[in-house]
Design a protein around this nucleic acid. Structure first.
Length: 276
DNA sequence: CACGAGACCTGTTCGC
DNA sequence: TGCGAACAGGTCTCGT
């Protein structure tokens, strides 16, 4: 589930509370339990357990798809990858099948990193800045500007779809929101980035922001068995809508593979650019 | 520099 | 019903 809007939704719910459960700000971590060693990227388990114990949660932050839990002395950074989720539960609840890392908090509560596919990672760092160097601009921030976006597109000889998925180019988009943004912008996923004119680049810039904001407003998208609680999936224009009519023109939505990722688009609304 | 393949993993769904 | 293949919200590394 985790693209920018889903991570942001999780961040807000951990910060402010959700579904009758209180927010976790201010709570002290009594101890940690690591159930799948590879989930912890850094430091080694011994140091991790020793260091995290007794620290207090100051707040929850997000950069791209990374969730940062700011603690008294360190920052616990989590990346949910394909199937990760965070569960707030009672300390006495049974440990669910796919819990990988569990924090026991004061007030008999637990914060659990649940991740069936085991791709997710956690880092406990004094300063997480190094993890984020190399990330592209944050699409909803002020300094993501259409002019600069146009210029960076001009410099790349890559197809739009894989380029938008590249976190070094722009950080936070994943497969769903990339397909949705390209449809809203009326651009074919195979279009070469450097052949967009300024108007098209600005339309794409706008579309990326609109789609992400809409995703956040709907609390993210819930597909499959992972992550419940968002309803952006009910507003998809192209993603997972193969052979169904485009809401704008009625043409059947097409699915192809671009850069090993399922890619959905409307062949009518998203024409191939001349010269491609 | 850009791209494709393979790796890391488990669970669900689809076709025969 | 059973079983294998394809597929899934992500990212890294390696070879061409």
């Amino acid at each position: 589930m985790p693209e920018l809007p889903e991570v942001e939704t999780i961040r807000r719910r951990l910060q402010d509370g959700y579904g009758g459960k209180p927010g976790l700000v201010g709570r002290q971590i009594q101890r940690a339990e690591l159930l799948w060693a590879r989930t912890l990227a850094e430091p080694d388990p011994d140091e991790f357990h020793y260091r995290i114990q007794g620290q207090r949660i100051l707040d929850f932050d997000r950069r791209a798809k990374y969730l940062s839990i700011r603690l008294s002395d360190d920052v616990l950074v989590l990346h949910l990858r394909m199937s990760g989720d965070l569960w707030v539960e009672a300390a006495t609840d049974e440990i669910a099948p796919h819990h990988r890392l569990v924090l026991y908090l004061e007030g008999d509560m637990r914060l659990a990193f649940n991740d069936p596919r085991k791709f997710g990672r956690a880092w406990l760092l004094a300063d997480p800045a190094g993890l984020f160097t190399g990330l592209g601009p944050e699409p909803l921030s002020e300094d993501f500007e259409p002019q600069r976006f146009y210029h960076s597109l001009q410099q790349r000889r890559r197809r739009l779809k894989p380029l938008l998925l590249d976190q070094h180019f722009i950080a936070g988009l994943g497969n769903i929101y990339t397909d949705e943004a390209l449809h809203l912008a009326g651009l074919h996923p195979m279009t070469m980035a450097n052949c967009l004119n300024y108007v098209q680049a600005e339309r794409l810039w706008q579309s990326i922001r609109r789609v992400l904001q809409e995703g956040i407003r709907r609390n993210g998208a819930s597909i499959d068995w992972v992550y419940r609680g968002g309803d952006f999936q009910n507003y998809f224009q192209v993603y997972q809508r193969v052979d169904q009519p485009c809401y704008r023109c009625g043409t059947a939505i097409v699915r192809t593979v671009v850069g090993q990722r399922g890619t959905h688009f409307c062949p009518q609304c998203q024409p191939v650019e001349p010269g491609d």
